[in-house]
Design a protein around this nucleic acid. Structure first.
Lengths: 233, 233
DNA sequence: CAGTGGTCTAGACCACAGG
DNA sequence: CTGTGGTCTAGACCACTGG
């Protein structure tokens, strides 16, 4: 029996994965501690730690001090979606990107919006509505509220040639945010803009981003029927 | 000027984030190399490496050997969705979970399915259709194809009390898979089962999982109108 | 209390890729 | 060729938490 050398954390990870997958270490099972594995694999404990930590991040292992490391009973699949600028998304598909500003105004938002963004209910915000196109066909409809009190210079930007999406990434830092995915039926207006049937099922992304305790922007993006967002597991 | 101590990788990471956020290191900027930062922060290079590597994983930094580390010009937002067993999802909301098997049969799938799963076009697969409930209300409709040639023992399971979802996690290992999110209009049948209006916008998850080069299962889950999946950024 | 993972350190070698 | 990040090592101390 040849004894393969485990000289880097990737090979250690592969071996651990093999044991999990082959049910040598079944779901729920306690596996040897780092020191023992390091001895068995002939490498430093640090290396084992790196491999196991990566697997724990991926949801395949449960690690707790003193309790040890267990194979996850129900591995939680983590789907990591890369939410990039829509222009990049379209161009990555080899399609021609287009952009059309529909509306830009400074106005007092609905209370739900000011509440979500934690701004005074009578404080006006900058509102943008714009259509993203792929090969001259409607692709996504973006409706955005921007907190002008937080984002410097936003009032001087017309947004006629650059989307709020892109401009904000370059000019408005944020510390954290929330994102939600859902589905909704197209209203008459939305259907007209997106050139689809009224009531058509639209994929929706809602984002709210913050700079510390100040809301930066709240955006809802509606994608044309048929849109899919996909990733590997 | 007080000199705070950076004694762990998290504090180093925070300081780096602060510099990025304050535009001391603007987007696209080359930042000092690890050795210099380690000297400045008074810690080991390993510690700086850990902090910067985490930020690179998060999409905030671009790192290349010899070229050095740059602040990402367009930070790609990575939304990590935890796709767990539906039962857990429901129970995590504090709701009562319910499950109802609608159909179970062994039959030859549509060609699109056998093609996607890379099975012979005349090979029968196990088909399951089941409804998940939350507080006795319809929550999600699962339609699943299982490759009986790959999953041992699946023909002996009735799936009357356990969902394919859950059973497979416990009995069928997989090595990789794809997942896609989209939106669709409810058909008459689906609307009847989900107790919603026909044409209602349903959130859709499609998954296809593999064990090596063999497809394990292909599933489509339709969620009731109003369903949202959310995560922090 | 004691076992386990979490992390830090200092030093070293290496792989990669820019110039 | 050389600078940069990527990683390994051996040893050490610490934080958390199960029993």
């Amino acid at each position: 029996m040849n004894k393969p050398a485990f000289r880097n954390w990737q090979s250690v990870q592969e071996e651990v994965l093999r044991r999990i997958h082959s049910r040598q270490w079944p779901p729920g099972e306690l596996i040897p501690n780092e020191a023992d594995l390091a001895a068995e694999f002939g490498c430093a404990r640090t290396t084992v730690n790196r491999a196991l930590r990566a697997l724990a991040d991926a949801g395949l292992l449960d690690r707790r001090r003193k309790a040890g490391t267990r194979v996850a009973a129900q591995p939680v699949a983590k789907a990591t979606l890369d939410i990039s600028v829509i222009r990049n998304e379209v161009e990555a598909r080899g399609q021609k990107y287009g952009y059309h500003l529909i509306d830009r105004r400074e106005t007092v938002p609905p209370v739900a919006t000011s509440a979500a963004m934690n701004t005074p209910i009578d404080a006006p915000l900058l509102y943008l509505k714009a259509l993203h196109l792929a090969n001259d066909r409607p692709y996504a409809l973006e409706s955005r509220w921007i907190n002008g009190a937080v984002v410097a210079g936003v009032r001087d930007e017309s947004f006629e040639t650059i989307s709020g999406n892109e401009w904000l990434l370059r000019h408005a830092p944020y510390t954290h945010g929330d994102i939600a995915f859902s589905a909704t039926n197209a209203t008459e207006d939305e259907a007209a803009i997106l050139d689809c049937a009224p009531g058509g099922a639209l994929f929706v992304i809602d984002r709210l981003t913050w700079d510390g305790d100040k809301a930066v922007t709240k955006v809802r993006i509606l994608f044309v029927p048929g849109y899919q967002i996909r990733t590997a597991l």
